[in-house]
């Protein structure tokens, strides 16, 4: 009788021990999330000689008001409204943050109103901070102005915005 009871009792004890560990184990808290958009009235603009490659001017975004300890999970940049004269090819956007030592390069064909996304580069850096954007381009053809072909081209993206997705 004793030996017949031992096995089921030991099994029950093992199950009870397992359940105990599971029950009193702490459930990790899920991180909260949010996002913040900052709009700019400024522009990224470049003037290049034909055949010249270079950077545009930059636009600065000051992001504040995100909860204490909040960190970036994703960044979206809306490049703004495009205007140009001549043929200027855009290669990429560059994005920097006051919370990181290096600059991110995001490939882009140059269309206005494009939303460019940065996913892992600024991950886990503080959401609050200063961000800057600019673009890199080549002038392949000058502008035609008043019937005269000039040897310079210009390109401008006006009123860009940045959206910071964060967790905290």
């Amino acid at each position: 009788m004793k030996s017949k009871l031992r096995k089921p009792i030991s099994v029950l004890l093992a199950i009870a021990a397992m359940l105990t560990i599971v029950v009193i184990g702490d459930v990790p808290a899920l991180a909260a999330s949010g996002n913040k958009t900052v709009n700019s009235t400024a522009s990224m603009s470049v003037i290049l000689n034909e055949g010249e490659t270079g950077y545009s001017s930059y636009v600065t975004f000051n992001v504040s008001g995100c909860p204490s300890g909040s960190t970036v999970s994703k960044i979206e940049v809306n490049v703004g409204t495009l205007s140009y004269q001549g043929a200027v090819l855009t290669y990429h956007l560059e994005l920097s943050s006051s919370n990181k030592s290096t600059v991110e390069t995001i490939s882009w064909g140059g269309a206005g109103g494009t939303k460019l996304t940065s996913t892992s580069f600024f991950a886990t850096t503080p959401a609050n901070g200063t961000y800057k954007i600019r673009f890199y381009a080549t002038c392949v053809g000058g502008a035609l102005v008043g019937g005269t072909m000039l040897d310079i081209g210009t390109k401008t993206y006006s009123k860009p915005s940045i959206k910071i997705y964060y967790t905290y």
């Binding site: 270079g54 950077y55 300890g69 030592s101 290096t102 886990t124």
Partner: peptide, 29 residues
């Protein structure tokens, strides 16, 4: 460029940076 310097991250730097930030941030929170 433009009389100044820009630094671009390597994959090794990115990975090492994330190790640091994740440990720091989890502890901080």
């Amino acid at each position: 460029a433009n009389g100044g310097w820009n630094s671009y991250e390597t994959a090794a730097e990115g990975a090492r940076s994330q190790e640091f930030l994740q440990l720091y941030t989890a502890t901080w929170r």
